[in-house]
Design a protein around this nucleic acid. Structure first.
Lengths: 200, 200
DNA sequence: CCGTGTATATTCACTAGGCAGTATACATCC
DNA sequence: GGATGTATACTGCCTAGTGAATATACACGG
C-alpha cells in the first residue's frame, strides 16, 4: 500500500462515469453510484459535497482522455490536412458502432441540464469543447490557412452535429457524411490559401 | 362547447410542451404537468396511459410546426440557394438569443433517453429529422445539384451541431458560423453542378 | 513501549419529500 | 343505464442529503 491502491474517490468517479454515461445524469441515483463503487452513500458524500459536485468530477475525468484520443487519430492519419481532419470522424464512426456507445457525455449532460446554465458541469463541458476548437485552430494556423478560427469552429460544429445525430438515428453513417463535409471545407480553405497567401 | 373549447387533452399536451421543453423530460413530474394543465393527475392518466405516452405526444406536437418554420425561413429568404439555406441558420440564431430558448426538443429528448433506443420518443425524433433532411434533398434535387442526398445530410448535421453547441456555450454566434459553412458547401456543389451536369 | 490526541475515512440508520401509477367513486350526457 | 370524463385519496417505492457513531493511522509525551 505504499503508492497505488485505487483510492476510494477514484473508484467513485469511475462508477459515476460508467453509470452517468450509460444511463444519463438524472436517470442514475447517488445510491446507485455508491453501490457500484462498493461504498456506502455516506462515504460518497464524504468525498463529494453533492450530486452536482459528482457530476462535475465525472465530466472532468472525461476531458483529457477525449482530447488526447482526437489528437492521436489526427496525428496518426495518413494524407494531407483534409484527410487528417476526416480521420477523426471516421475513427469516431467506428467507435459509434459499438453497442455501448452513447454519444458525447458533455453534450448529453448539457442537454439534460439545459435549464441550469450556470451549472458547473456546463462550464466544464464548454471548456472542453473550446479546447478542442482551439487545438484545431492551431493546426490550421500552422498550415497557414486563412480564417483558421472560423474553420476550426465549423469542424467542431460538424463533429458535435455527428454526436447528436448519430445518437438519435443510431446510424454511424452520418458521421462519415460529416467527415466528408469537413474534408471539403478544409480543402477549400487550403486552395484559397495557396492562391492568396494573406487573408483579406 | 359545440366545437372549439380547448379540449382537456390539448391543454395537457400544451402544459407538457412548456414544461418538458423548459426543464427536460426527467426533470418534470407528471404531477407538475397535470397541475399546469389545471387537471388532476388522474385525469391526465385517463388521456395518456403513461408518462412515456405523454412524452411521445409532446414531440408529435412539435414536429409539424418546426418543419413549417424552417421551410418558411427558406422560402422567404432572398438570394440564391446557398443564401436560402444560410437563412435558416441566421433565423435560428435570432431565436436562440431569446433567453427561453433551450435548443432542439427532439435532440435533447434523445440525449435524455439515450439508454432506451426503442423508446417511442426516439422514433418520433428520428422521423422528424428525416423529414427535414428529405425536404432539403428535394430542394437540392430541384436545383439539379449532384449528390443532393449527401449534401442535405451535411446541412442537417450542421444544423443539429448548432443546436447542441449553442445550447452548451450559450453563444448564438456558432449558429452563424454553421450557416456560413452550409452556404459554402451548397455553393461548391452548385459550381460543380454547372461544370459537370451529371454526377460521376 | 505505551497511552493519548487528532485528522481521515467509513458505516448504519434515518429524514423528509418526490415519484409514477392506481382504486374507487362521482358526475354528466346521450 | 352505459360511456365519457373528472376528482379525492392513496400505495409503494425512490430520492438527495444528514446525524451520530465508529474504525484506522499516525504524532507526540512519558
Amino acid at each position: 500500500m505504499t503508492s497505488t491502491a485505487k483510492p476510494t474517490k477514484d473508484r467513485i468517479v469511475a462508477a459515476a462515469n460508467k453509470l452517468f454515461y450509460d444511463e444519463g445524469i438524472r436517470g442514475v441515483s447517488v445510491d446507485a453510484v455508491a453501490e457500484r463503487a462498493g461504498v456506502t452513500k455516506r462515504t460518497l458524500y464524504y468525498h463529494f459535497k453533492s450530486k452536482d459536485d459528482l457530476i462535475a468530477a465525472y465530466l472532468e475525468g472525461r476531458d483529457q482522455p477525449n482530447l488526447v484520443l482526437f489528437k492521436r487519430w489526427f496525428d496518426e492519419a495518413k494524407g494531407g490536412l483534409p484527410m487528417k481532419v476526416q480521420a477523426i470522424f471516421d475513427n469516431l464512426a467506428h467507435s459509434a458502432r459499438h453497442p455501448k456507445w452513447r454519444g458525447c457525455g458533455f453534450l448529453r449532460t448539457s442537454a439534460e441540464l439545459a435549464n441550469m446554465p450556470g451549472h458547473p458541469a456546463m462550464k466544464i463541458g464548454a471548456a472542453h469543447k473550446k479546447k478542442f476548437e482551439a487545438w484545431l485552430q492551431t493546426e490550421f494556423d500552422t498550415a497557414k490557412l486563412s480564417n483558421a478560427p472560423l474553420l476550426a469552429r465549423q469542424i467542431a460544429l460538424l463533429l458535435d452535429g455527428s454526436f447528436a445525430t448519430v445518437l438519435l438515428h443510431r446510424d454511424a453513417a452520418y458521421m462519415e457524411a460529416a467527415g466528408l463535409a469537413a474534408n471539403k471545407l478544409v480543402s477549400t480553405a487550403k486552395r484559397a490559401a495557396s492562391k492568396a497567401p494573406r487573408s483579406s
